[in-house]
Computed example of a mutant assay.
Amino acid sequence: MAVFPDQEDSEEDELFEHYSFTADAGQKPLRVDKFLMTRIRNATRNKIQQAARDGNIRANEQVVKQNYRVKPGDTVRVLFEHPPYENLLLPEAIPLDIVYEDDTLLVVNKPARMVVHPGHGNYSGTLVNALVHHFDQLPVNADNRPGLVHRIDKDTSGLLVIAKTEVAMAHLAKQFFDKTTRREYLALVWGNVEADSGTVEGAIGRNPKNRLQMQVFPDESQGKAAITHYRVVERLGYVTLVSCQLETGRTHQIRVHMKHIGHTLFNDERYGGDRILKGTSFTKYKQFVENAFKLLPRQALHARTLGFVHPVSGESMDFEAPVPEDMASCIDKWRDYAKHRADE
């Protein structure tokens, strides 16, 4: 069975949904089950009470029962178990944008907002649900996920290679593990990236204060080595269009590395890019940025190219996916803005 290496923007792999809330200063004492019901969409009281019985509710990092009363400033965390993974692999008639296909593999262009595999609150509508509908008897990886060799995040668009045979699964997984694949991402980031090109090196691990985020650590004692090469494509005033190539493939690697050097991805909600990070706060500019956010209601990241060696023929194969409309429209909007500023 093929090894499933870490990949850029990989989805949460654990068998839980994670939630964390901090009670504000005006919070009146309230049972923790009622506190959570008002904050988690579609959460039932039974589900919350089961989490409490399982020891999966914490207040200020201490396990609490369902009758614990939340006080101002309390940080409340809860984990919900999701159904067994094999119960989530239901075929769904979801269209696929297939860039290439043969008897061994296929390359798909994943749209933004589509989760790659079920889990962490996304139990249907995923790429895997579509794959098991369109293809019979796909091989499974070490995590029991049909066809998957690598992954990209829900809100990242772009190219993925899917294995149709065990031979392809093992061969392609080894290429990712050996770092011989060729992957380029296009990203729109906040700020003017001064150097025309550069390399970001820094171990990436989970943020101890927010487990849904990753962060850079000074050494590999708390994270895994990660290397990202970037090149400026176009400077657009308060934002920059960059090309990123991965030497490694850690969770959220591009998003974390670019933030680490002061250039958070545009509209990356998880890492704070959904706020105005560069430029003035004048009403006219603020409205412009808000309109740009509406055009691109996700992080500005697209897996544009993918290259690998064919597992059977040995042929070197390279594919490219055009920048999707939402990201292209946002880039054009910034391009026009930058031009008007230069003309003033």
Rank of each mutant, 00 (worst) to 15 (best):
D6M: 15
D9A: 12
L36W: 13
D24T: 01
H18D: 06
E8R: 11
L36Y: 12
E11T: 06
S20C: 12
D6H: 09
D24G: 13
Q7R: 15
E11W: 08
S10E: 15
L36C: 06
E17I: 12
E17W: 05
F35C: 09
Q27R: 05
K34I: 08
D33R: 07
T22W: 07
H18V: 02
T22D: 08
D24Q: 02
D9G: 10
L15N: 12
G26V: 05
R31A: 01
L30T: 15
E14T: 11
A23I: 01
I40F: 02
H18C: 00
F35W: 06
S20Y: 06
E14W: 12
E11G: 09
F35S: 13
Q27G: 04
E8T: 10
L30Y: 02
Y19T: 00
F16A: 01
T38H: 14
F16Q: 00
R31I: 07
S20D: 09
H18T: 04
Q7M: 15
F35P: 12
T38I: 10
A25D: 14
A23P: 10
K34R: 13
K28F: 00
Q27V: 01
L36P: 07
K28M: 14
D6T: 15
F21V: 08
R39Q: 13
D13N: 07
R31E: 01
A25W: 12
S10G: 14
S10H: 13
G26Y: 07
F21K: 03
H18P: 01
M37Y: 08
Y19N: 00
E11R: 11
T38K: 15
P29G: 02
D9V: 00
F16R: 03
Y19R: 00
D13H: 09
E17G: 05
E12L: 06
S10I: 12
A23C: 01
E11Q: 13
F35T: 10
Q27L: 02
D13P: 12
D24W: 03
D13W: 05
D33Y: 04
E17M: 06
L15Y: 09
S10R: 15
L15R: 14
R39T: 05
D33E: 09
A25F: 08
D6S: 15
R39H: 03
E12G: 00
P29M: 13
V32W: 07
F16K: 04
M37L: 14
D33K: 03
F35E: 04
L30W: 07
A23F: 03
H18W: 09
V32Y: 02
F21E: 00
A23M: 05
D33F: 02
D9K: 02
R31L: 00
K28I: 03
